[in-house]
Every structure is written in structure tokens, then in C-alpha cells.
Simulated scan of single mutants.
Amino acid sequence: MKKTAILILTLSSLASFAQKISDYKYISFPAKFETFKEDFGLAELLTKTLRSKNYIVVPLDKLQWPSEAKDNPCNVLLADIINDSGFLRNKVVVKFKDCNDKEIQSIKGASSIKEYKEGFQDALKQTYTSISPANPIVQSTVQTKVQEPVISTQPVTNVSSLVIDNTAMKFSNGKMDLQKIQIDKSQFILVNSNSSSPFATFKVTTKNDVFRVKLQNGESTLGYFENGNIVIEIPQSNGEYFKEVFSKK
């Protein structure tokens, strides 16, 4: 029973930081979708759909990529449209994979329109609502399968049982004073001694000094060390980010 509980907690922790389409800014797809006899206007429609969701569509030729994508190819998500039609319905599957060929999401769409061009386009339109708007984060530059960092099997949701060490490193943004408490080698928290839950929980990524951050309000974002300070990118209602800097006291 105890092992089962630990497994559930571990999976929950990993799931909360799983990659999503919205983690990316750039998306590329092939000039020809191999499972279709012709284009049927799908490339143009997919391009319009992605751009409406604030993604930047780049060609498959890496020489034509913007410098940000060239410097880190893992910032580019690879999309493909698969013909999944049955006897009576035109069906498509839109697949998104990362630079390590790992599938991030697969979205299905179907149409009862029998004509190929209209039917395939209608099926592709059905996937629109399942594609979240771009909300990019920095991706790992490693283009090989990397081992996931070890995540504590005891996620920090309440700090009332922790002993607050007065000698622990303290940080402030001018409005609040927080203490940095190292939970284990893969995560630490920023905590206000007057609160029963952490202000932010930091988990390591494959990039040094860059962390996936879970805020007190449940939002996920990015954090990093900069000149000895802790920086958190705070999501705003307009989709932009505010740089919150906590200086070491």
C-alpha cells in the first residue's frame, strides 16, 4: 500500500512538469505529408492554425531557421499530419514530436464530408481547439534521450512540518522576504515563514541553473539563477511574462 502511494505521488509530480505543445515557440513540418497522395491545402491550413495560436512556423531546412532556433534545435517542435481515414469518414491525426523524436501530443479529427479536399480540411479544423496557444519555455539543448532528474517522492505541499532555519539563505524582491530551503538534490523551495505552503517550488532541468517552477497559485513557469539572484518569470493575463527578481540578502 505504501509503495502504491509513493508511485502515485511520483507520477503526479512528473505529470505536472510534462512537456506540452505550448512549451514551444517554433514548429516545423515536412513539405509533403507522406500518407496523403496530394496536399489538399492541409499545409496552408495548418500554418494558419498555428500562427493564430502565436506559434512561428519555420521551414524544414534548418539553414532558414532564425538564430534562436539554429542555436538550439530543441526549441523547434516537429509536426506531421497522418491520413487515418476509414470507409465512411475522412480522418486525420496531427502529431507533434520533440527533437528526440518523442511524441508530445497526438490530436485526432474526423469529418463526414466525403470529398477529399473539403473532408480532410474539415477534419483538420476539428483539431484546432486541442492546440493550446504558445507559451514557450527554454528547452534542453541535448538532442539525445536524457534521463529524467530524480524527483522526490514526497512533493512539498505544506511547509508547516519543516523546521525553518534562521541561517538559511534569504532572498527578497523588496515586497516579501523568502527563505531558500533545499529539499533534496533535485528540488528546493522558496518559503515565507508566515505561510503554510511554499511560494514557489523549483525542480531541476537538464540545463544548469534553469528550473521548472510551480507557483503557490498552481501555475507552472520558468526560474533561473542570475548574478546570484533568483529570477522567476511570472505569467501575466495577457500571455506575457514579468521578470520577478529575488536578491540575496
Rank of each mutant, 00 (worst) to 15 (best):
K91V: 08
D101L: 09
G228V: 06
E240R: 15
D80C: 07
E68Q: 00
Y26T: 06
V231R: 13
D23H: 03
V210A: 12
F188G: 04
V58A: 00
T144F: 14
K62P: 02
S152N: 09
T157E: 11
F96R: 06
D165Q: 13
K170H: 07
V57P: 03
S196N: 09
A200N: 14
K70R: 07
Q143D: 11
S52K: 09
K95W: 07
L60A: 03
K70W: 00
I181V: 12
F171N: 04
A43R: 04
Q121H: 10
F96N: 08
S132Y: 02
K175C: 02
F171L: 10
K203H: 11
G41T: 02
K248N: 08
F33Y: 02
R212L: 02
S140Q: 09
C99Q: 09
Y241R: 12
P235F: 01
K3P: 15
F199W: 13
K91Y: 01
S85W: 02
L88N: 04
P149Y: 06
S160Q: 15
S85G: 09
T201N: 14
N72T: 09
K32L: 10
D122A: 13
K114Q: 09
K48H: 08
S160R: 10
K170F: 09
F225H: 14
M176H: 11
S193N: 15
T201K: 12
G86Q: 04
E118M: 05
I8G: 04
E44T: 05
N194K: 15
L46C: 05
A134S: 00
K32D: 11
D61F: 10
I230M: 15
T205Y: 01
F96W: 03
S85I: 00
G109Q: 03
E68N: 10
N72L: 04
N72D: 03
K145Y: 11
N100T: 11
E226D: 15
I151M: 14
R212S: 14
S186Y: 10
S161I: 12
F33V: 01
L178V: 11
G109W: 01
F199P: 14
F225A: 13
N158F: 03
N229T: 11
Y128K: 07
A110Q: 06
S132D: 00
S197R: 08
V213H: 10
P198F: 07
T47L: 09
K25W: 00
T221A: 12
L42Q: 05
Q121F: 01
S237H: 00
T221D: 12
I181T: 14
E148V: 07
T205M: 07
K117R: 12
V156C: 07
V245E: 13
I27V: 06
D23A: 07
K125M: 04
K170E: 14
K2Y: 12
S13A: 08
V94R: 05
K170Q: 14
K214A: 05
K214L: 14
K48Q: 04
K53D: 01
T49K: 02
L14P: 06
E233S: 12
V150W: 05
K203N: 13
L178K: 12
F246I: 01
G109S: 04
T4N: 15
P136N: 03
E115C: 01
D101Q: 12
S12K: 05
F33T: 01
S130D: 03
L46H: 06
G174R: 02
G174T: 08
S237K: 08
L215Q: 09
N238K: 12
L88M: 14
I82N: 00
V213T: 10
I113Q: 08
V159A: 13
S160I: 14
I6K: 13
Y241L: 04
P133E: 00
Q187W: 05
N227R: 11
